[in-house]
Simulated scan of single mutants.
Amino acid sequence: MITTEPEADPFDAHRRLLFATAYRMLGTVGDAEDIVQDTWLAWSKADRSEVRHPKAYLVRTVTNLSLNRLTSARATREEYVGPWLPEPLLTAPDVAREHERAEEVSMAMLVVLESLTPVERVVFVLREAFGYSHAEIAGFLHRPEPTVRQIAHRARKHVADRRTVHDTDAARREEVTARFLSACAGGDLNAVLELLAPDVTAWSDGGGKVSSARRPLYGADHVGRFLIGVTAKAVRDAAGTLPVPAPAVINGELGIRILAGDIPVGAITYDLDDGLMRNLRFHVNPDKLSGLRRRDDRDTDR
């Protein structure tokens, strides 16, 4: 007797794609997971006999749920305490070796996407990150194809105007990260300053939940002294487990993950230009660190 295994449920087969899509659209791990869960609920209630293309149905559902979430999130973020940064996400080490994939999910790219309108962001992600045609996107959004083409053109130009080219040399980034960790641990201000671009900017996202700079810091001296001060304060305030920073691939690039035991308490991401650190981002809001936990069912692959 010949037996065959049951076919995999399309939702399970595309779960990673759905999370990757929602995360790029929203920039938040928790919201992306909620969207995936809501998509599963819609899928579980759907009349499967009416669904000719399950993948398209699932992506369309994620797209529209994300668009609704983005629209409502804009008002919430206007009341956010201090700078708002996208949530950091651990990614597979191989992502860092593939420039195109790393660029798509990099923290720098997510920050630029924050400047788009919700519909521009959704169209840009579907078109540029996942390669959907204008006609397919028009079907997802129930909008005329010429309108989608205009939105895509506008979003692409907006991103191109704000995107800057950064150093992607993996070996250099590894060296800079190691030197940075050593300098901060040793309280060596001069060594830190050697690694910072003169016009470096630093943002701290604490969301009012933990102590952090409420405004961006500008210039190597200000940023360097802030780094040394934060490191010293962490040591003084440590109650029991001392937070330990270590290199980690975050959003497709080598960054720094900070753990207290096995609990993520922060992350540092940055851009690298000519071997110097620029655009430092301190992620310390405890509500936005779930993406720093290792999970087998979460990915940023297409």
Rank of each mutant, 00 (worst) to 15 (best):
V249M: 03
L196S: 05
Y23L: 02
F11A: 06
A42F: 02
D297F: 09
L116K: 09
A267V: 09
S44L: 12
T177W: 01
I268R: 06
L90R: 05
D34I: 02
A213S: 15
I228A: 05
Y270V: 09
A46R: 14
P245S: 04
T201C: 03
G252Y: 05
V230W: 06
T71W: 01
T241G: 03
V122H: 07
V230F: 09
L65H: 02
D301P: 04
V122M: 08
D237K: 12
E194R: 12
R294C: 08
P286V: 08
F130W: 06
L242D: 05
E100N: 05
E194T: 03
R295Y: 11
S133H: 03
K55L: 11
S212K: 03
P118M: 04
L65N: 01
L181N: 09
T147Q: 10
L181H: 11
D237S: 13
R77T: 13
I137H: 04
G82L: 10
W203F: 13
T241C: 04
L126W: 05
K233S: 04
L70V: 04
K233H: 09
H14C: 07
A75P: 00
V210F: 11
I137V: 14
R60C: 05
M109R: 15
Y57I: 05
F180G: 02
D299H: 12
G275C: 01
S66L: 08
T300H: 06
D34T: 15
N68A: 15
T4R: 10
H142Y: 07
E79D: 12
F124C: 03
L65T: 01
D94Q: 08
T231D: 05
P247A: 02
G240S: 13
S212C: 12
Y270I: 04
A234S: 10
R143C: 04
R48H: 15
L276N: 00
A248N: 05
D296C: 05
I268E: 06
W43A: 08
A92L: 10
D301Y: 11
L65M: 14
D47M: 02
H158C: 02
E120Q: 15
H53P: 00
R24I: 00
H14R: 03
D237V: 07
A260M: 04
A246G: 03
R149W: 10
A46W: 02
G82V: 10
T76D: 13
G275Y: 01
P198Q: 05
P93W: 04
V159A: 05
L292F: 01
R163N: 03
K45M: 15
R154Q: 14
R127F: 07
K55M: 07
P216S: 13
N285D: 15
F140C: 00
P264Y: 06
H134R: 06
H222E: 14
P243D: 00
I151G: 07
A42P: 00
T164D: 09
G229Q: 06
S182H: 11
P216D: 13
P146M: 11
K288S: 12
L181K: 11
V59C: 08
T91F: 08
R293A: 00
E87W: 09
